[in-house]
């Protein structure tokens, strides 16, 4: 590399961060119905419908096929700018990409919330121990028990317990404690680099650069007043 190339300013920086965005949760794929409803809402709150960016969510929708292009046009005619879709259906994802829209995987929230309602697991079974690294693509579940991982949980791996989850190495993937709704459950790990932590259905995702202070040290995650705290 030429020595003075290095001194040049970078053209850009990537930044992570959370952004609040309006979601259009579609209950039907019928464009006429969507259009009707949108124009009704526009009359109620015209200010809202001035080039507002929205996320089109198909989480609730089971019917297929979906004419995404037409739905997008309906939105645009009514002052909304679809920027991305959220869905599990491969076909919708493909059309989103073809239309130049972003794609997000469906929310896991619902699944997590559903299990939280069930308080099935009062009697605990013996702790489940797993020796070694839990790797991308692997999922481990300790039913009605605590789970102890004698190693790290890597990105793309998921460890789940109805009781506590204890990780002797770094947590880089997903850890779910109190999967049946035990709000006293905890997640313990040696280093917090998690993608997601959930306790009794209350979950938090972590943006890669925003690690809480001291997350290189052993940490405990638990619930306090329905929200997740890191100790």
């Amino acid at each position: 590399m030429h020595p003075d190339q290095r001194d040049q300013q970078a053209a850009f920086q990537f930044k992570g961060g959370n952004l609040t965005i309006t979601t259009l949760e579609l209950m039907t794929a019928d464009c006429a119905k969507i259009e009707q409803e949108l124009s009704r809402q526009t009359q109620k709150a015209p200010a809202f419908f001035r080039q507002t960016p929205v996320l089109l969510s198909f989480d609730q929708l089971e019917e297929l096929p979906v004419a995404l292009e037409m739905i997008v046009d309906v939105c645009k005619r009514n002052g909304l700018i679809p920027i991305a879709v959220r869905c599990g259906q491969e076909a919708i994802k493909k059309s989103a990409w073809a239309l130049g829209l972003g794609w997000f995987p469906p929310l896991t929230e619902r699944r997590l919330k559903e299990v939280a309602k069930d308080k099935g697991c009062i009697q605990r079974l013996p702790t489940r121990f797993v020796r070694g690294t839990v790797r991308s693509g692997q999922q481990i579940y300790a039913s009605c028990a605590d789970l102890v991982i004698l190693g790290a949980v890597n990105e793309g791996a998921e460890v789940i317990a109805d009781g506590n989850v204890q990780i002797w190495g770094a947590l880089r993937g997903r850890a779910i404690a109190g999967a049946q709704g035990d709000t006293d459950a905890k997640v313990l790990c040696q280093q917090l680099r998690a993608e997601l932590v959930s306790i009794a259905g209350v979950f938090q995702t972590f943006d890669a650069c925003e690690w809480p202070e001291n997350s290189d040290l052993p940490v405990e995650l638990r619930l306090e007043d329905q929200s997740l705290v890191i100790v």
């Binding site: 690294t133 790797r135 991308s136 693509g137 692997q138 890597n154 990105e155 793309g156």
Partner: peptide
């Protein structure tokens, strides 16, 4: 690295 992690899982 992530794909290799996955492969090591399959080897196991």
């Amino acid at each position: 690295v992530r794909d290799s992690d996955r492969i090591i899982g399959l080897l196991d």
